Amino acid sequence: MPLLDRALARMEALGLPVAVNACYLGHMVAEHVGDRAHLSVEPGDPLGTAGGIGLLRDWIGGRGVLVGNADAYLASDALPPGADIAALLEDWDGREARILGVPGPPNEFGGHRFAGFSLLPWDLVATLEPEPSDLVRLAWRPAERQGRLRVVEYPGTYLDTGTPADYLAANLHAVHPGNLIGEDALVTGALDRAVIGARAVVAGDVTRGVVWPGGEVAADEKLTDAIRVGRGLTVLAH
């Protein structure tokens, strides 16, 4: 879960108390996070971006909240590591709602689209309930109508890695133009822009691909534009 680890690192770099909301495969998320953050595991169906915050409302206890999507990939040559979301907090008055944005379609907020992180004052958080709902309708748009929503432009690349194609694109962007090989991986095949997870065994060729930790690519295989999980699960990224 490298993107989750990146999100945790961003929060930790800012010196903030960190909570992780987990739903789908929540037990795996909880096991991975361990004691690095306060854990909130949703009990049933997904609560959405607002409902998950509502479930954490007592833990938040009157504070403002910096909310990050763990599947948001951010990369910028203009900012040092750990500083890419710090602009959201600069000179914050505790009342303004802020979202990180990048220019371009679908132009959700003026000429920007949402880039994975937002900052919410407590009075907006206090209205959120632990029920299926989203921050767009219950927090950002209301703040926008009140004239207290600000878009903080992100000077870099943002990808929402919710699809196989975007997940692969984020991995390839991170290693361009080379390869990344995890600890204890055994690679005897040819690699071209590949991300190989820890303990993976790669005897075949991988071109523009990702092999998850512990995954395998047999000697007679050529994995291209795809993600390999375990020994036989291949997710095509196009």
Rank of each mutant, 00 (worst) to 15 (best):
G178F: 03
N179G: 09
N179A: 14
L180I: 00
L180F: 04
L180K: 09
I181R: 12
I181S: 07
I181C: 08
I181M: 09
I181G: 04
E183D: 15
E183S: 15
D184C: 10
D184S: 13
A185W: 07
L186P: 00
L186E: 13
T188R: 13
T188G: 05
T188M: 07
T188V: 03
T188K: 07
G189H: 10
G189Q: 04
G189C: 10
L191T: 11
L191N: 08
L191H: 10
D192L: 11
D192F: 09
D192V: 06
D192H: 15
D192T: 12
D192N: 12
D192P: 02
D192R: 07
R193S: 11
R193C: 14
R193W: 03
R193F: 01
A194P: 09
A194W: 13
V195T: 14
I196Y: 09
G197W: 08
G197S: 08
G197H: 07
G197M: 08
A198W: 03
R199F: 01
R199G: 01
A200Q: 04
V201E: 12
V201S: 14
V202N: 11
A203E: 15
G204N: 07
G204A: 13
G204P: 03
G204T: 09
D205S: 12
D205P: 05
D205K: 01
V206L: 08
V206Y: 06
V206Q: 07
T207Y: 14
T207H: 14
T207D: 09
T207R: 15
T207S: 09
R208T: 09
R208G: 04
R208L: 01
G209V: 03
G209W: 06
V210E: 02
V210I: 15
V211C: 10
V211Y: 04
W212M: 12
W212A: 13
W212L: 15
P213D: 07
G214P: 08
G214W: 03
G215N: 02
G215I: 08
E216F: 00
E216Y: 06
V217A: 03
V217T: 08
A218W: 02
A218F: 12
A218K: 14
A219T: 06
D220V: 02
D220C: 02
E221V: 10
T224N: 06
T224P: 03
T224R: 12
T224C: 03
T224W: 00
D225Q: 07
D225I: 01
D225W: 05
D225N: 15
A226Y: 10
I227K: 02
I227N: 04
I227R: 00
I227W: 05
R228Y: 02
R228S: 04
R228L: 06
R228E: 01
